[in-house]
Computed example of a mutant assay.
Amino acid sequence: MNRDSLTVATPAGTVHATAGLRRGDAVVFELGGAMRGSVHVTGTHHPQHWDRFTAVRACLGPVNAYQTTAPDDALPRLARGSSGYRGSLRLHTDVVGRPEVSVYPMETAAGHEPSPKTAATLTAVLRACAEHVMQREDLPAILTASRERDTPALLRFLDWSVTHHQAEAARLEAEARAAHPARRAAVAAWWTVARWFTASPHPVLLVMLADYPGSLSRHVSVMQWLAPYCLTAASREHDQARRAETEAAGLRNQQIRQRRRGLTDSERVRNDLTRR
């Protein structure tokens, strides 16, 4: 299975992609036919769940583009072209098992957007390589290795995310509390002007009571919805913080289980050596 070859029909012609030996969490495909170069495929997390490594990412070039940048002369190119191309694609399944693809921007080494025909060719090759890896027998090992590789950086991000969302929630709650006295003051001011107008009608007072941007009446309207809006937004921030905490806990638990599994494997090897 390590030398599987794919034949991919593309707008630029037939592309042949041959999978090399797996390198830890990655499979590198060498391209031939209508394209030259390589595609690097690795595991990655589900787009909605940072702690669930159930997707694969295919990158143009011999390396993981999310960790390092391939030299310009190592980027894949069309057989009849001179421009190397960067870009990536993520493949995962939805809740009912249907494949979903996210294509990230394609560009030349010089930063130019490829033609629609070239973009379709690059996408077709990336998708074919990603789909192949999704069907490999060693996919669980690829995903596990990818999770171990990405967990430290993801934990840093999730810990930052918890702090950020909690701080935003606190700010919004403070703004909601401040909005209540501001609303009462605005309503009181409006009624004061209304009483002045009733006692002595004047065009200036009528303008002060009218509803237009920046007016006293518009300020009252804003103050009436500001506190509920801030509280709703604060609730969303709390939800985001809790979700980040849960995902971070999930990653840490997987780390612990993997370490225990590693210790168990080491103990088994030592026991086997002792018996011998």
Rank of each mutant, 00 (worst) to 15 (best):
D159R: 05
R257G: 12
D25L: 11
A26C: 14
L158R: 09
H132M: 12
V15I: 13
A174F: 02
R276Y: 12
E267H: 10
S88L: 12
A110V: 01
A26D: 04
Y212E: 03
T163F: 04
R242M: 08
W50Y: 09
A179K: 08
C59Q: 07
P99A: 06
P105V: 00
F53E: 03
L205K: 09
P114C: 08
T18A: 13
R177M: 06
E175T: 01
A19E: 05
A74I: 05
M134Q: 12
M35Y: 03
P201M: 08
L154M: 15
E107W: 03
E107G: 08
P71E: 01
H202Y: 01
V96E: 12
M208L: 04
M208C: 09
P201K: 09
V39P: 02
T54S: 15
P181I: 13
F197N: 15
R177K: 13
P114S: 12
A79C: 07
Q48V: 12
E107V: 05
T14I: 15
A34Q: 06
F157V: 04
A26K: 09
A79R: 10
A153T: 12
P201A: 10
E137R: 10
T54L: 04
L122A: 07
V28K: 08
P228D: 06
A178K: 05
A233V: 07
Q224I: 04
V103N: 02
A189C: 03
A153E: 14
S221K: 12
T118P: 03
V39L: 02
E148I: 11
V95R: 14
E168G: 10
T18L: 11
E100F: 01
Q258Y: 06
A79G: 14
M223K: 12
T18M: 10
V207K: 11
F197W: 13
T123A: 15
T44V: 13
R171K: 10
L122E: 08
V207R: 12
E100L: 06
A9I: 01
L206E: 08
E100P: 00
L158P: 09
G81Q: 04
T163G: 10
L60H: 08
R268C: 05
Q224C: 02
R77F: 11
T192C: 03
W191M: 11
T192Q: 12
G262K: 03
E173C: 06
A185Y: 02
T93K: 02
A167G: 13
A9M: 11
R156M: 04
H112S: 13
T274E: 14
L78M: 08
P116S: 07
Q48N: 11
T69D: 15
A153P: 02
H45P: 00
Q254E: 11
G32A: 02
L263S: 13
R86P: 00
R36Q: 14
F53Y: 15
G61K: 10
S221W: 03
S102M: 03
T198P: 02
L122G: 05
T68G: 05
L91Y: 07
L226I: 00
R195Y: 11
Y85C: 08
H164E: 14
S83C: 04
V41H: 04
P116F: 05
T151Y: 02
V204N: 11
T198E: 15
A153S: 13
L205W: 06
P152V: 05
L205C: 01
